[in-house]
């Protein structure tokens, strides 16, 4: 029982990080039809930006800000202008292939230029645990959960309550109608790319202390992000959160009670079950097909 609570708390914390990556993934899909297979590398790259800064004596908070800016420029604006814009008119497959190529390129660039081994990464939270319901929970799990939760909720509020947020949602739902209503669609789509890059940078800050910064750390995170997005519902922002947490918790439980060897397979099985019985995702709405 004691183990169960610990497993659920830490699973929820990991799941919340998956959710951050999944959220950006969903937003990109909604706003521009981009399926980004380099999403995991968008989490990996800021970790190394931060490492480069901290090893030169820059404090972590400043390194994080630098990473956010670098990500927003390179993986937000740069990614949109250089990769997505010229390819979007050719349909889904060339763009997906380009993001796969980008994923290989970024990974190997870091491997060749920085390090092939896993690098220790400073944590934002103090080490140690505190008692909760007769068991012990680590500060980093609770802190991760708080930060990730806060970001998801404020993003939700931003999308639902502010004019810019609602305009972004309008673009996602119907680009032409949004244009007719006088919304600057191009700017809104650009915002989405920047938000995605920053969300990935936050995920990077939270996950790197436990996963360690490694050139291929994005493989697993990216994958969980896709599955979380689909399990929760591709067209629902809140779905990403549910999907992420579900994967995080189930991975922990199955890894502990069944077999740690198959932990990585949990997301796939959950995904298959969901698309078999509820193809639109747990919280998603069935989409009409466009002719």
């Amino acid at each position: 029982m004691v183990d169960l609570i610990q497993l659920i708390v830490s699973g929820t914390a990991t799941g919340a990080i998956y959710a951050l990556a999944a959220l950006g993934f969903t937003l990109l899909w909604q706003a521009s039809g981009t399926i980004n297979f380099a999403q995991g590398e968008f989490v990996m790259l800021p970790a190394f930006t931060m490492l480069i800064c901290t090893t030169r004596g820059v404090p972590l908070w400043l390194a994080f800000l630098v990473a956010c800016v670098v990500s927003a420029i390179l993986l937000g604006i740069g990614f949109k202008r250089i990769v997505v814009d010229p390819l979007i008119r050719h349909g889904v497959i060339p763009l997906v292939i380009a993001t796969l190529g980008l994923s290989i390129g970024l990974k190997q660039l870091v491997k060749a230029s920085y390090a092939a081994e896993a690098q220790p990464f400073p944590s934002v939270f103090p080490a140690g645990q505190f008692p909760l319901f007769g068991t012990h929970v680590s500060y980093s799990d609770v802190g991760t959960l708080l930060i990730a939760g806060l970001i998801v909720i404020s993003l939700q509020l931003f999308l639902k309550r502010t004019v810019t947020g609602r305009a972004m949602q309008a673009c996602a739902q119907n680009m032409d109608a949004a244009k007719v209503l006088g919304i600057n669609v191009k700017t809104m789509v650009l915002y989405v790319f920047i938000i995605n890059a920053v969300l990935a940078a936050v995920a990077s800050l939270l996950i790197s202390p436990t996963y360690l910064a490694k050139f291929d750390m994005g493989d697993s995170i990216g994958q969980k992000a896709f599955f979380a997005a689909i399990i929760g519902g591709f067209n629902q922002t809140s779905g990403a959160l549910l999907g992420g947490v579900l994967i995080g918790v189930l991975e922990n439980l199955i890894g502990f009670y069944v077999s740690p060897a198959y932990k990585e397979g949990v997301a796939l099985v959950l995904f298959m079950v969901v698309i078999l019985f509820r193809p639109e995702g747990l919280l998603g709405k069935a989409e009409e097909r466009k002719v």
Partner: peptide, 21 residues
């Protein structure tokens, strides 16, 4: 090219898709 081979390969794929989808 040793370690750089796959990095070059990855970005070459991106370029190929952009110029010759």
């Amino acid at each position: 090219m040793q370690n750089w081979y796959l990095a070059v390969f990855g970005f070459a794929i991106v370029a190929l898709m952009i110029f010759l989808p």
